[in-house]
Simulated assay, not measured.
Amino acid sequence: MDIYSFIKELVEDEFNRGNVPANGYASDGVFSIIDDHFYDTDTAKKLATVQAPELNGDDFHYYREELYRTEGGAFFLVGRGHGCTPWTYGGYPGHMVVPMTDASVRRWLQGRNLNYLYLNLFGIPPEAGRKEPFSVLLPEDLTEEVFQRASAMNIPVQTWIEIFLRNALERESDQGDTLP
């Protein structure tokens, strides 16, 4: 999902919850009460601003998004935009305050290519494809059977063990079984 679709989905989710874009293009000093929580740009720390260059006053694609964090650690996004953005109100410029989970903040930061802020807020994510080393001492007969089964499937032993463990864990969670 691209960043535009992600933002549109965020706004639609808020709209479905009753939080609708406010009419008019808001300047600084936006606040909102959502689900009995107060979000205020005057008391929260602004972490990032992303905006499309405004070509002229009638540019329907202009938007500005600002990520904030409250003193209590909650994230929220203030989006402002013209007619062809998700931040619109009936085709007119609008703005909205959107509470953000850690996962949605990560997604927004990645979509807006704010990697430095991602690292600052959440640290270095795991390397793609990284696997943790794991050692198990097995009886010789069991080791031989694992090697034979992997060989019969023409796959590496590590891959066979990974598939076997994933299947076993999935069956266990489906059946509610627990090992002694």
Rank of each mutant, 00 (worst) to 15 (best):
residue 56 N to M: 04
residue 77 L to H: 07
residue 146 V to P: 10
residue 159 T to I: 12
residue 150 A to N: 06
residue 16 N to S: 08
residue 29 G to V: 11
residue 43 T to S: 11
residue 134 F to Y: 11
residue 9 E to T: 13
residue 157 V to R: 10
residue 61 H to P: 00
residue 106 R to D: 02
residue 173 S to M: 13
residue 111 G to T: 05
residue 21 P to I: 03
residue 48 A to R: 01
residue 48 A to S: 07
residue 58 D to W: 11
residue 163 I to Q: 05
residue 125 P to M: 07
residue 39 Y to H: 03
residue 75 F to L: 01
residue 135 S to E: 05
residue 44 A to D: 01
residue 35 D to V: 12
residue 18 G to Y: 05
residue 144 E to Y: 08
residue 71 E to S: 13
residue 111 G to M: 04
residue 10 L to R: 01
residue 2 D to H: 05
residue 93 P to K: 00
residue 82 H to L: 12
residue 92 Y to F: 12
residue 151 S to H: 14
residue 165 L to F: 07
residue 56 N to A: 05
residue 158 Q to M: 08
residue 57 G to V: 09
residue 58 D to H: 13
residue 28 D to S: 13
residue 169 L to H: 07
residue 37 H to M: 11
residue 123 G to R: 03
residue 127 E to S: 10
residue 9 E to N: 14
residue 37 H to D: 05
residue 135 S to W: 14
residue 125 P to I: 02
residue 157 V to Y: 12
residue 112 R to K: 08
residue 177 D to V: 14
residue 90 G to I: 03
residue 94 G to I: 00
residue 64 R to P: 08
residue 101 T to I: 09
residue 99 P to A: 04
residue 164 F to N: 07
residue 11 V to R: 06
residue 36 D to C: 09
residue 115 N to H: 15
residue 46 K to I: 06
residue 39 Y to V: 01
residue 179 L to W: 12
residue 177 D to W: 14
residue 24 G to Q: 06
residue 114 L to M: 11
residue 26 A to H: 15
residue 173 S to W: 08
residue 15 F to C: 00
residue 17 R to E: 14
residue 166 R to P: 00
residue 76 F to C: 00
residue 71 E to P: 08
residue 59 D to F: 15
residue 57 G to T: 14
residue 148 Q to V: 06
residue 84 C to E: 06
residue 108 W to D: 00
residue 157 V to L: 06
residue 83 G to C: 02
residue 142 L to F: 13
residue 146 V to G: 05
residue 48 A to Y: 09
residue 81 G to T: 03
residue 60 F to Y: 04
residue 174 D to S: 06
residue 174 D to K: 09
residue 159 T to L: 10
residue 31 F to T: 08
residue 94 G to M: 01
residue 163 I to W: 11
residue 28 D to F: 12
residue 150 A to G: 12
residue 86 P to K: 15
residue 99 P to T: 04
residue 167 N to H: 12
residue 16 N to M: 05
residue 178 T to Q: 02
residue 93 P to H: 02
residue 93 P to Q: 07
residue 116 Y to K: 09
residue 90 G to N: 10
residue 100 M to W: 00
residue 96 M to R: 07
residue 115 N to G: 14
residue 50 V to C: 02
residue 66 E to Y: 03
residue 122 F to T: 00
residue 72 G to V: 06
residue 12 E to K: 03
residue 58 D to N: 14
residue 146 V to Q: 06
residue 71 E to F: 09
residue 53 P to S: 13
residue 105 V to M: 03
residue 56 N to F: 15
residue 75 F to K: 02
residue 55 L to H: 06
residue 69 R to G: 04
residue 57 G to W: 15
residue 57 G to A: 15
residue 30 V to Q: 13
residue 104 S to P: 04
residue 148 Q to D: 12
residue 173 S to P: 10
residue 113 N to G: 05
residue 2 D to L: 04
residue 90 G to T: 03
residue 28 D to L: 15
residue 169 L to R: 15
residue 162 E to Q: 08
residue 151 S to V: 09
residue 145 E to A: 06
residue 66 E to K: 14
residue 15 F to E: 00
residue 96 M to N: 04
residue 145 E to M: 03
residue 74 A to L: 08
residue 93 P to W: 01
residue 127 E to V: 11
residue 120 N to W: 12
residue 60 F to T: 13
residue 70 T to N: 01
residue 164 F to G: 01
residue 20 V to M: 08
residue 141 D to H: 14
residue 121 L to H: 02
residue 60 F to E: 13
residue 161 I to P: 10
residue 65 E to Y: 13
residue 105 V to A: 02
residue 24 G to E: 01
residue 138 L to S: 09
residue 106 R to E: 05
residue 64 R to L: 07
residue 151 S to C: 10
residue 71 E to T: 09
residue 95 H to T: 11
